[in-house]
Amino acid sequence: MTGIGHHVPEAMLRDYATGALPYPFELVVATHVSMCDTCRAALGAEEALGGAALDGAGPEDLTPGLRDAVLSRLDDTVIAPPRPARRGIYPGPLAELIGDRDPRWRSVGPGVRQSILHDDADGSARLLFIPPGEAVPEHGHNGLELTLVLQGSFHDESDSFGVGDLEVADADMVHLPIAGDGLPCICLAATDAPLRFKSLVPRLAQRFFRI
């Protein structure tokens, strides 16, 4: 795929490689990498560094017998889990999560729909469906929000985002993204905090303590 201009920041790719990202962001990174050869190569470089660290580690003695135990299991039959495959506009990691059906959309405004894929203490991930010309719903979160375009596009005052582009926005960023003309905009949006409407108490706490 060509024309992707907004990529995963380098530090975030490194955090993905080392396992330091919360689940919702991992989902976004894995989905973007499925669409973007530039980030796939950059992630490979991060893993190469992990490999170089592995080459330099230890070595530490193994329990006698471990080698034989492994070699004796080479003929074991294994049922390999299916590897993530794209379905329609949904790249493998997302298709895996959605399953064999269409996302369960709920209306959240004029023509705007969302489908919550994940929401817990690690943060949230949801699909958004925004008709052409409509505003992308307010973030409703603290911390970082990642938005990855899967179909159509959106733009704000300063930038525009097409298929495969990733927007990284912090909670203080004031902007009003609008879906572009053409196909409805479908994106994957993820936060590293639970969605606000889940509970009143955290929302009050968030307001007073800015946590």
Binding site: G44, G51, A53, P93
Partner: peptide, 29 residues
């Protein structure tokens, strides 16, 4: 992928899966 980087990825995924008891999202091959 260099062999060591490829093995690194397998090892890290294994560590993470054990830690979280659910598998992490991976890019489409």
């Amino acid at each position: 992928a260099p062999v060591s980087g490829w093995i690194y990825r397998i090892a890290r995924n294994r560590q993470i899966d054990l830690h979280r008891r659910k598998s992490r999202p991976e890019p489409e091959p």
